[in-house]
Design a protein around this nucleic acid. Structure first.
Lengths: 232, 232
DNA sequence: GGCGGCCATTATGAATTCAAAAATGTCAAA
DNA sequence: TTTGACATTTTTGAATTCATAATGGCCGCC
């Protein structure tokens, strides 16, 4: 095989910084590559090549692969290498109800625990997001949207819950960013968020839980539509 | 302490069977050791010693440790080794609401998806469990109880949900088995299960979800009591 | 000309080796 | 006697080496 076309002298070397371990850095780096689509679905991940790219040996890379496999981002077939798992519509159907339930729990807990300052912060984020919605700035809207949901999750004060939610979130992140949401649904989502904010401010846990659940379920439909063009 | 009574010439060597990989076997083995309490809380896990015990090299063991760390069973401090994480009462407070929410989702889905045969199976398990309850056979009761919840989870037909639930389940399994439930609470749990069965048979998803949620929450109190004697 | 088995190559699984950080033990001084 | 600095030992982190299963090409056969 001839030399590769793109020659990068120090592509994205992972420098061993004293505090974190090498394999942890590799995990994060690989996640980024997967999200960026640089490691495409179903393509085999050649260990040697990645090692060269990162400038490390195979040992920490393989440790990282094990971790990512456990997270569900890649699949690890014995003697047959690792490959990025393809996100199927059915996965969306599976993940979103779970995330909805988790957000519902978070919402209930948040209503109990959140400070007035916390509510104020979320309110600020909300109206910032509303502005982006009005202006049709999708990327910014998505970013704020994400942060609001994270804030609610954080306010719940349940690290275990947060961790699991985050892990699931990562799993479908690729699809989520793809989501080319139609205007009508976008308006609806914005209205839902309006209600979510009010309910949180009123500290109506049960209602907020229900709202978040259905909000997620609605989102599920959109996301599924965006990836259903590439069938399993 | 004198030498252990049972001397095992080849203690628990892990033999490389063709299909599964070594590190996966090690993960399972280590989980067992942790659950059995052979690896006590907070004690450092010496790699070399375990390698000798398993008859393997350090590489697959370390890979397994990474995975278990991601599962939350052990903590991995750089250059300071791995140690089994101690189950604190606060962990119970965190985990059970999440499991409750997951079971609620499962209950709703199960009501939609479960076959009549599936209901019949759970009914059989239920009355078997009731018998153990009547006889005061705690271990058997716990076993059946576990299986019923697993059946409901399975009937939901959501692998992602099952996986997360299982992972959480493992995390608190130690505490769960410890649970020396008082008779009064046991009777109450049995009554709750009676209702759970009826609601499932009636396919009332919303109600079943609610029941499972509160059922888990009640259980949480008992479990927490059992580990609160050993404070954080 | 196409298909199937055989051998060389390659990639993965695991063991070993090397390096570096942390734990331990020793000895001296306050 | 206690404390603190230093040297030694131990343990972990990472690289390298070895073994083995899978991949791919080649040749013979149908």
């Amino acid at each position: 095989m001839p030399a590769p076309v793109t020659i990068d002298p120090a592509p994205e070397k992972i420098v061993p910084n004293g505090q974190s371990t090498l394999h942890e850095d590799v995990v994060n780096k690989l996640r980024e590559l997967i999200f960026d689509g640089q490691l495409a679905d179903e393509t085999r991940i050649p260990e040697k090549q990645l090692c060269a790219r990162f400038g490390i040996s195979r040992t920490p890379l393989r440790e990282a692969l094990k971790v990512l496999a456990r997270e569900g981002l890649i699949s690890l077939l014995p003697h047959r290498g690792a490959r990025v798992v393809k996100l199927k519509p059915s996965d969306i159907d599976e993940v979103f109800p779970v995330m909805g339930a988790l957000e519902a729990v978070a919402g209930e807990a948040a209503c109990r625990n959140i400070s007035e300052e916390g509510i104020a912060e979320i309110r600020a984020l909300h109206y910032q997001m509303a502005l982006h919605h009005t202006r049709g700035e999708r990327a910014d809207y998505f970013r704020l949207n994400q942060r609001i949901h994270e804030k609610i999750m954080e306010a719940a004060g349940n690290p275990t819950l947060s961790q699991i939610y985050k892990s699931l979130s990562l799993r479908i992140r690729r699809a989520r960013y793809m989501a080319n949401i139609p205007q009508q649904r976008w308006d609806q989502a914005m209205a839902e968020h309006e209600l979510i904010l009010q309910t949180l401010a009123a500290r109506d846990g049960a209602k907020l839980g229900q709202l978040l659940k259905t909000h997620l379920l609605n989102k599920s439909e959109v996301v599924k539509a965006t990836i259903s063009d590439s069938p399993p």
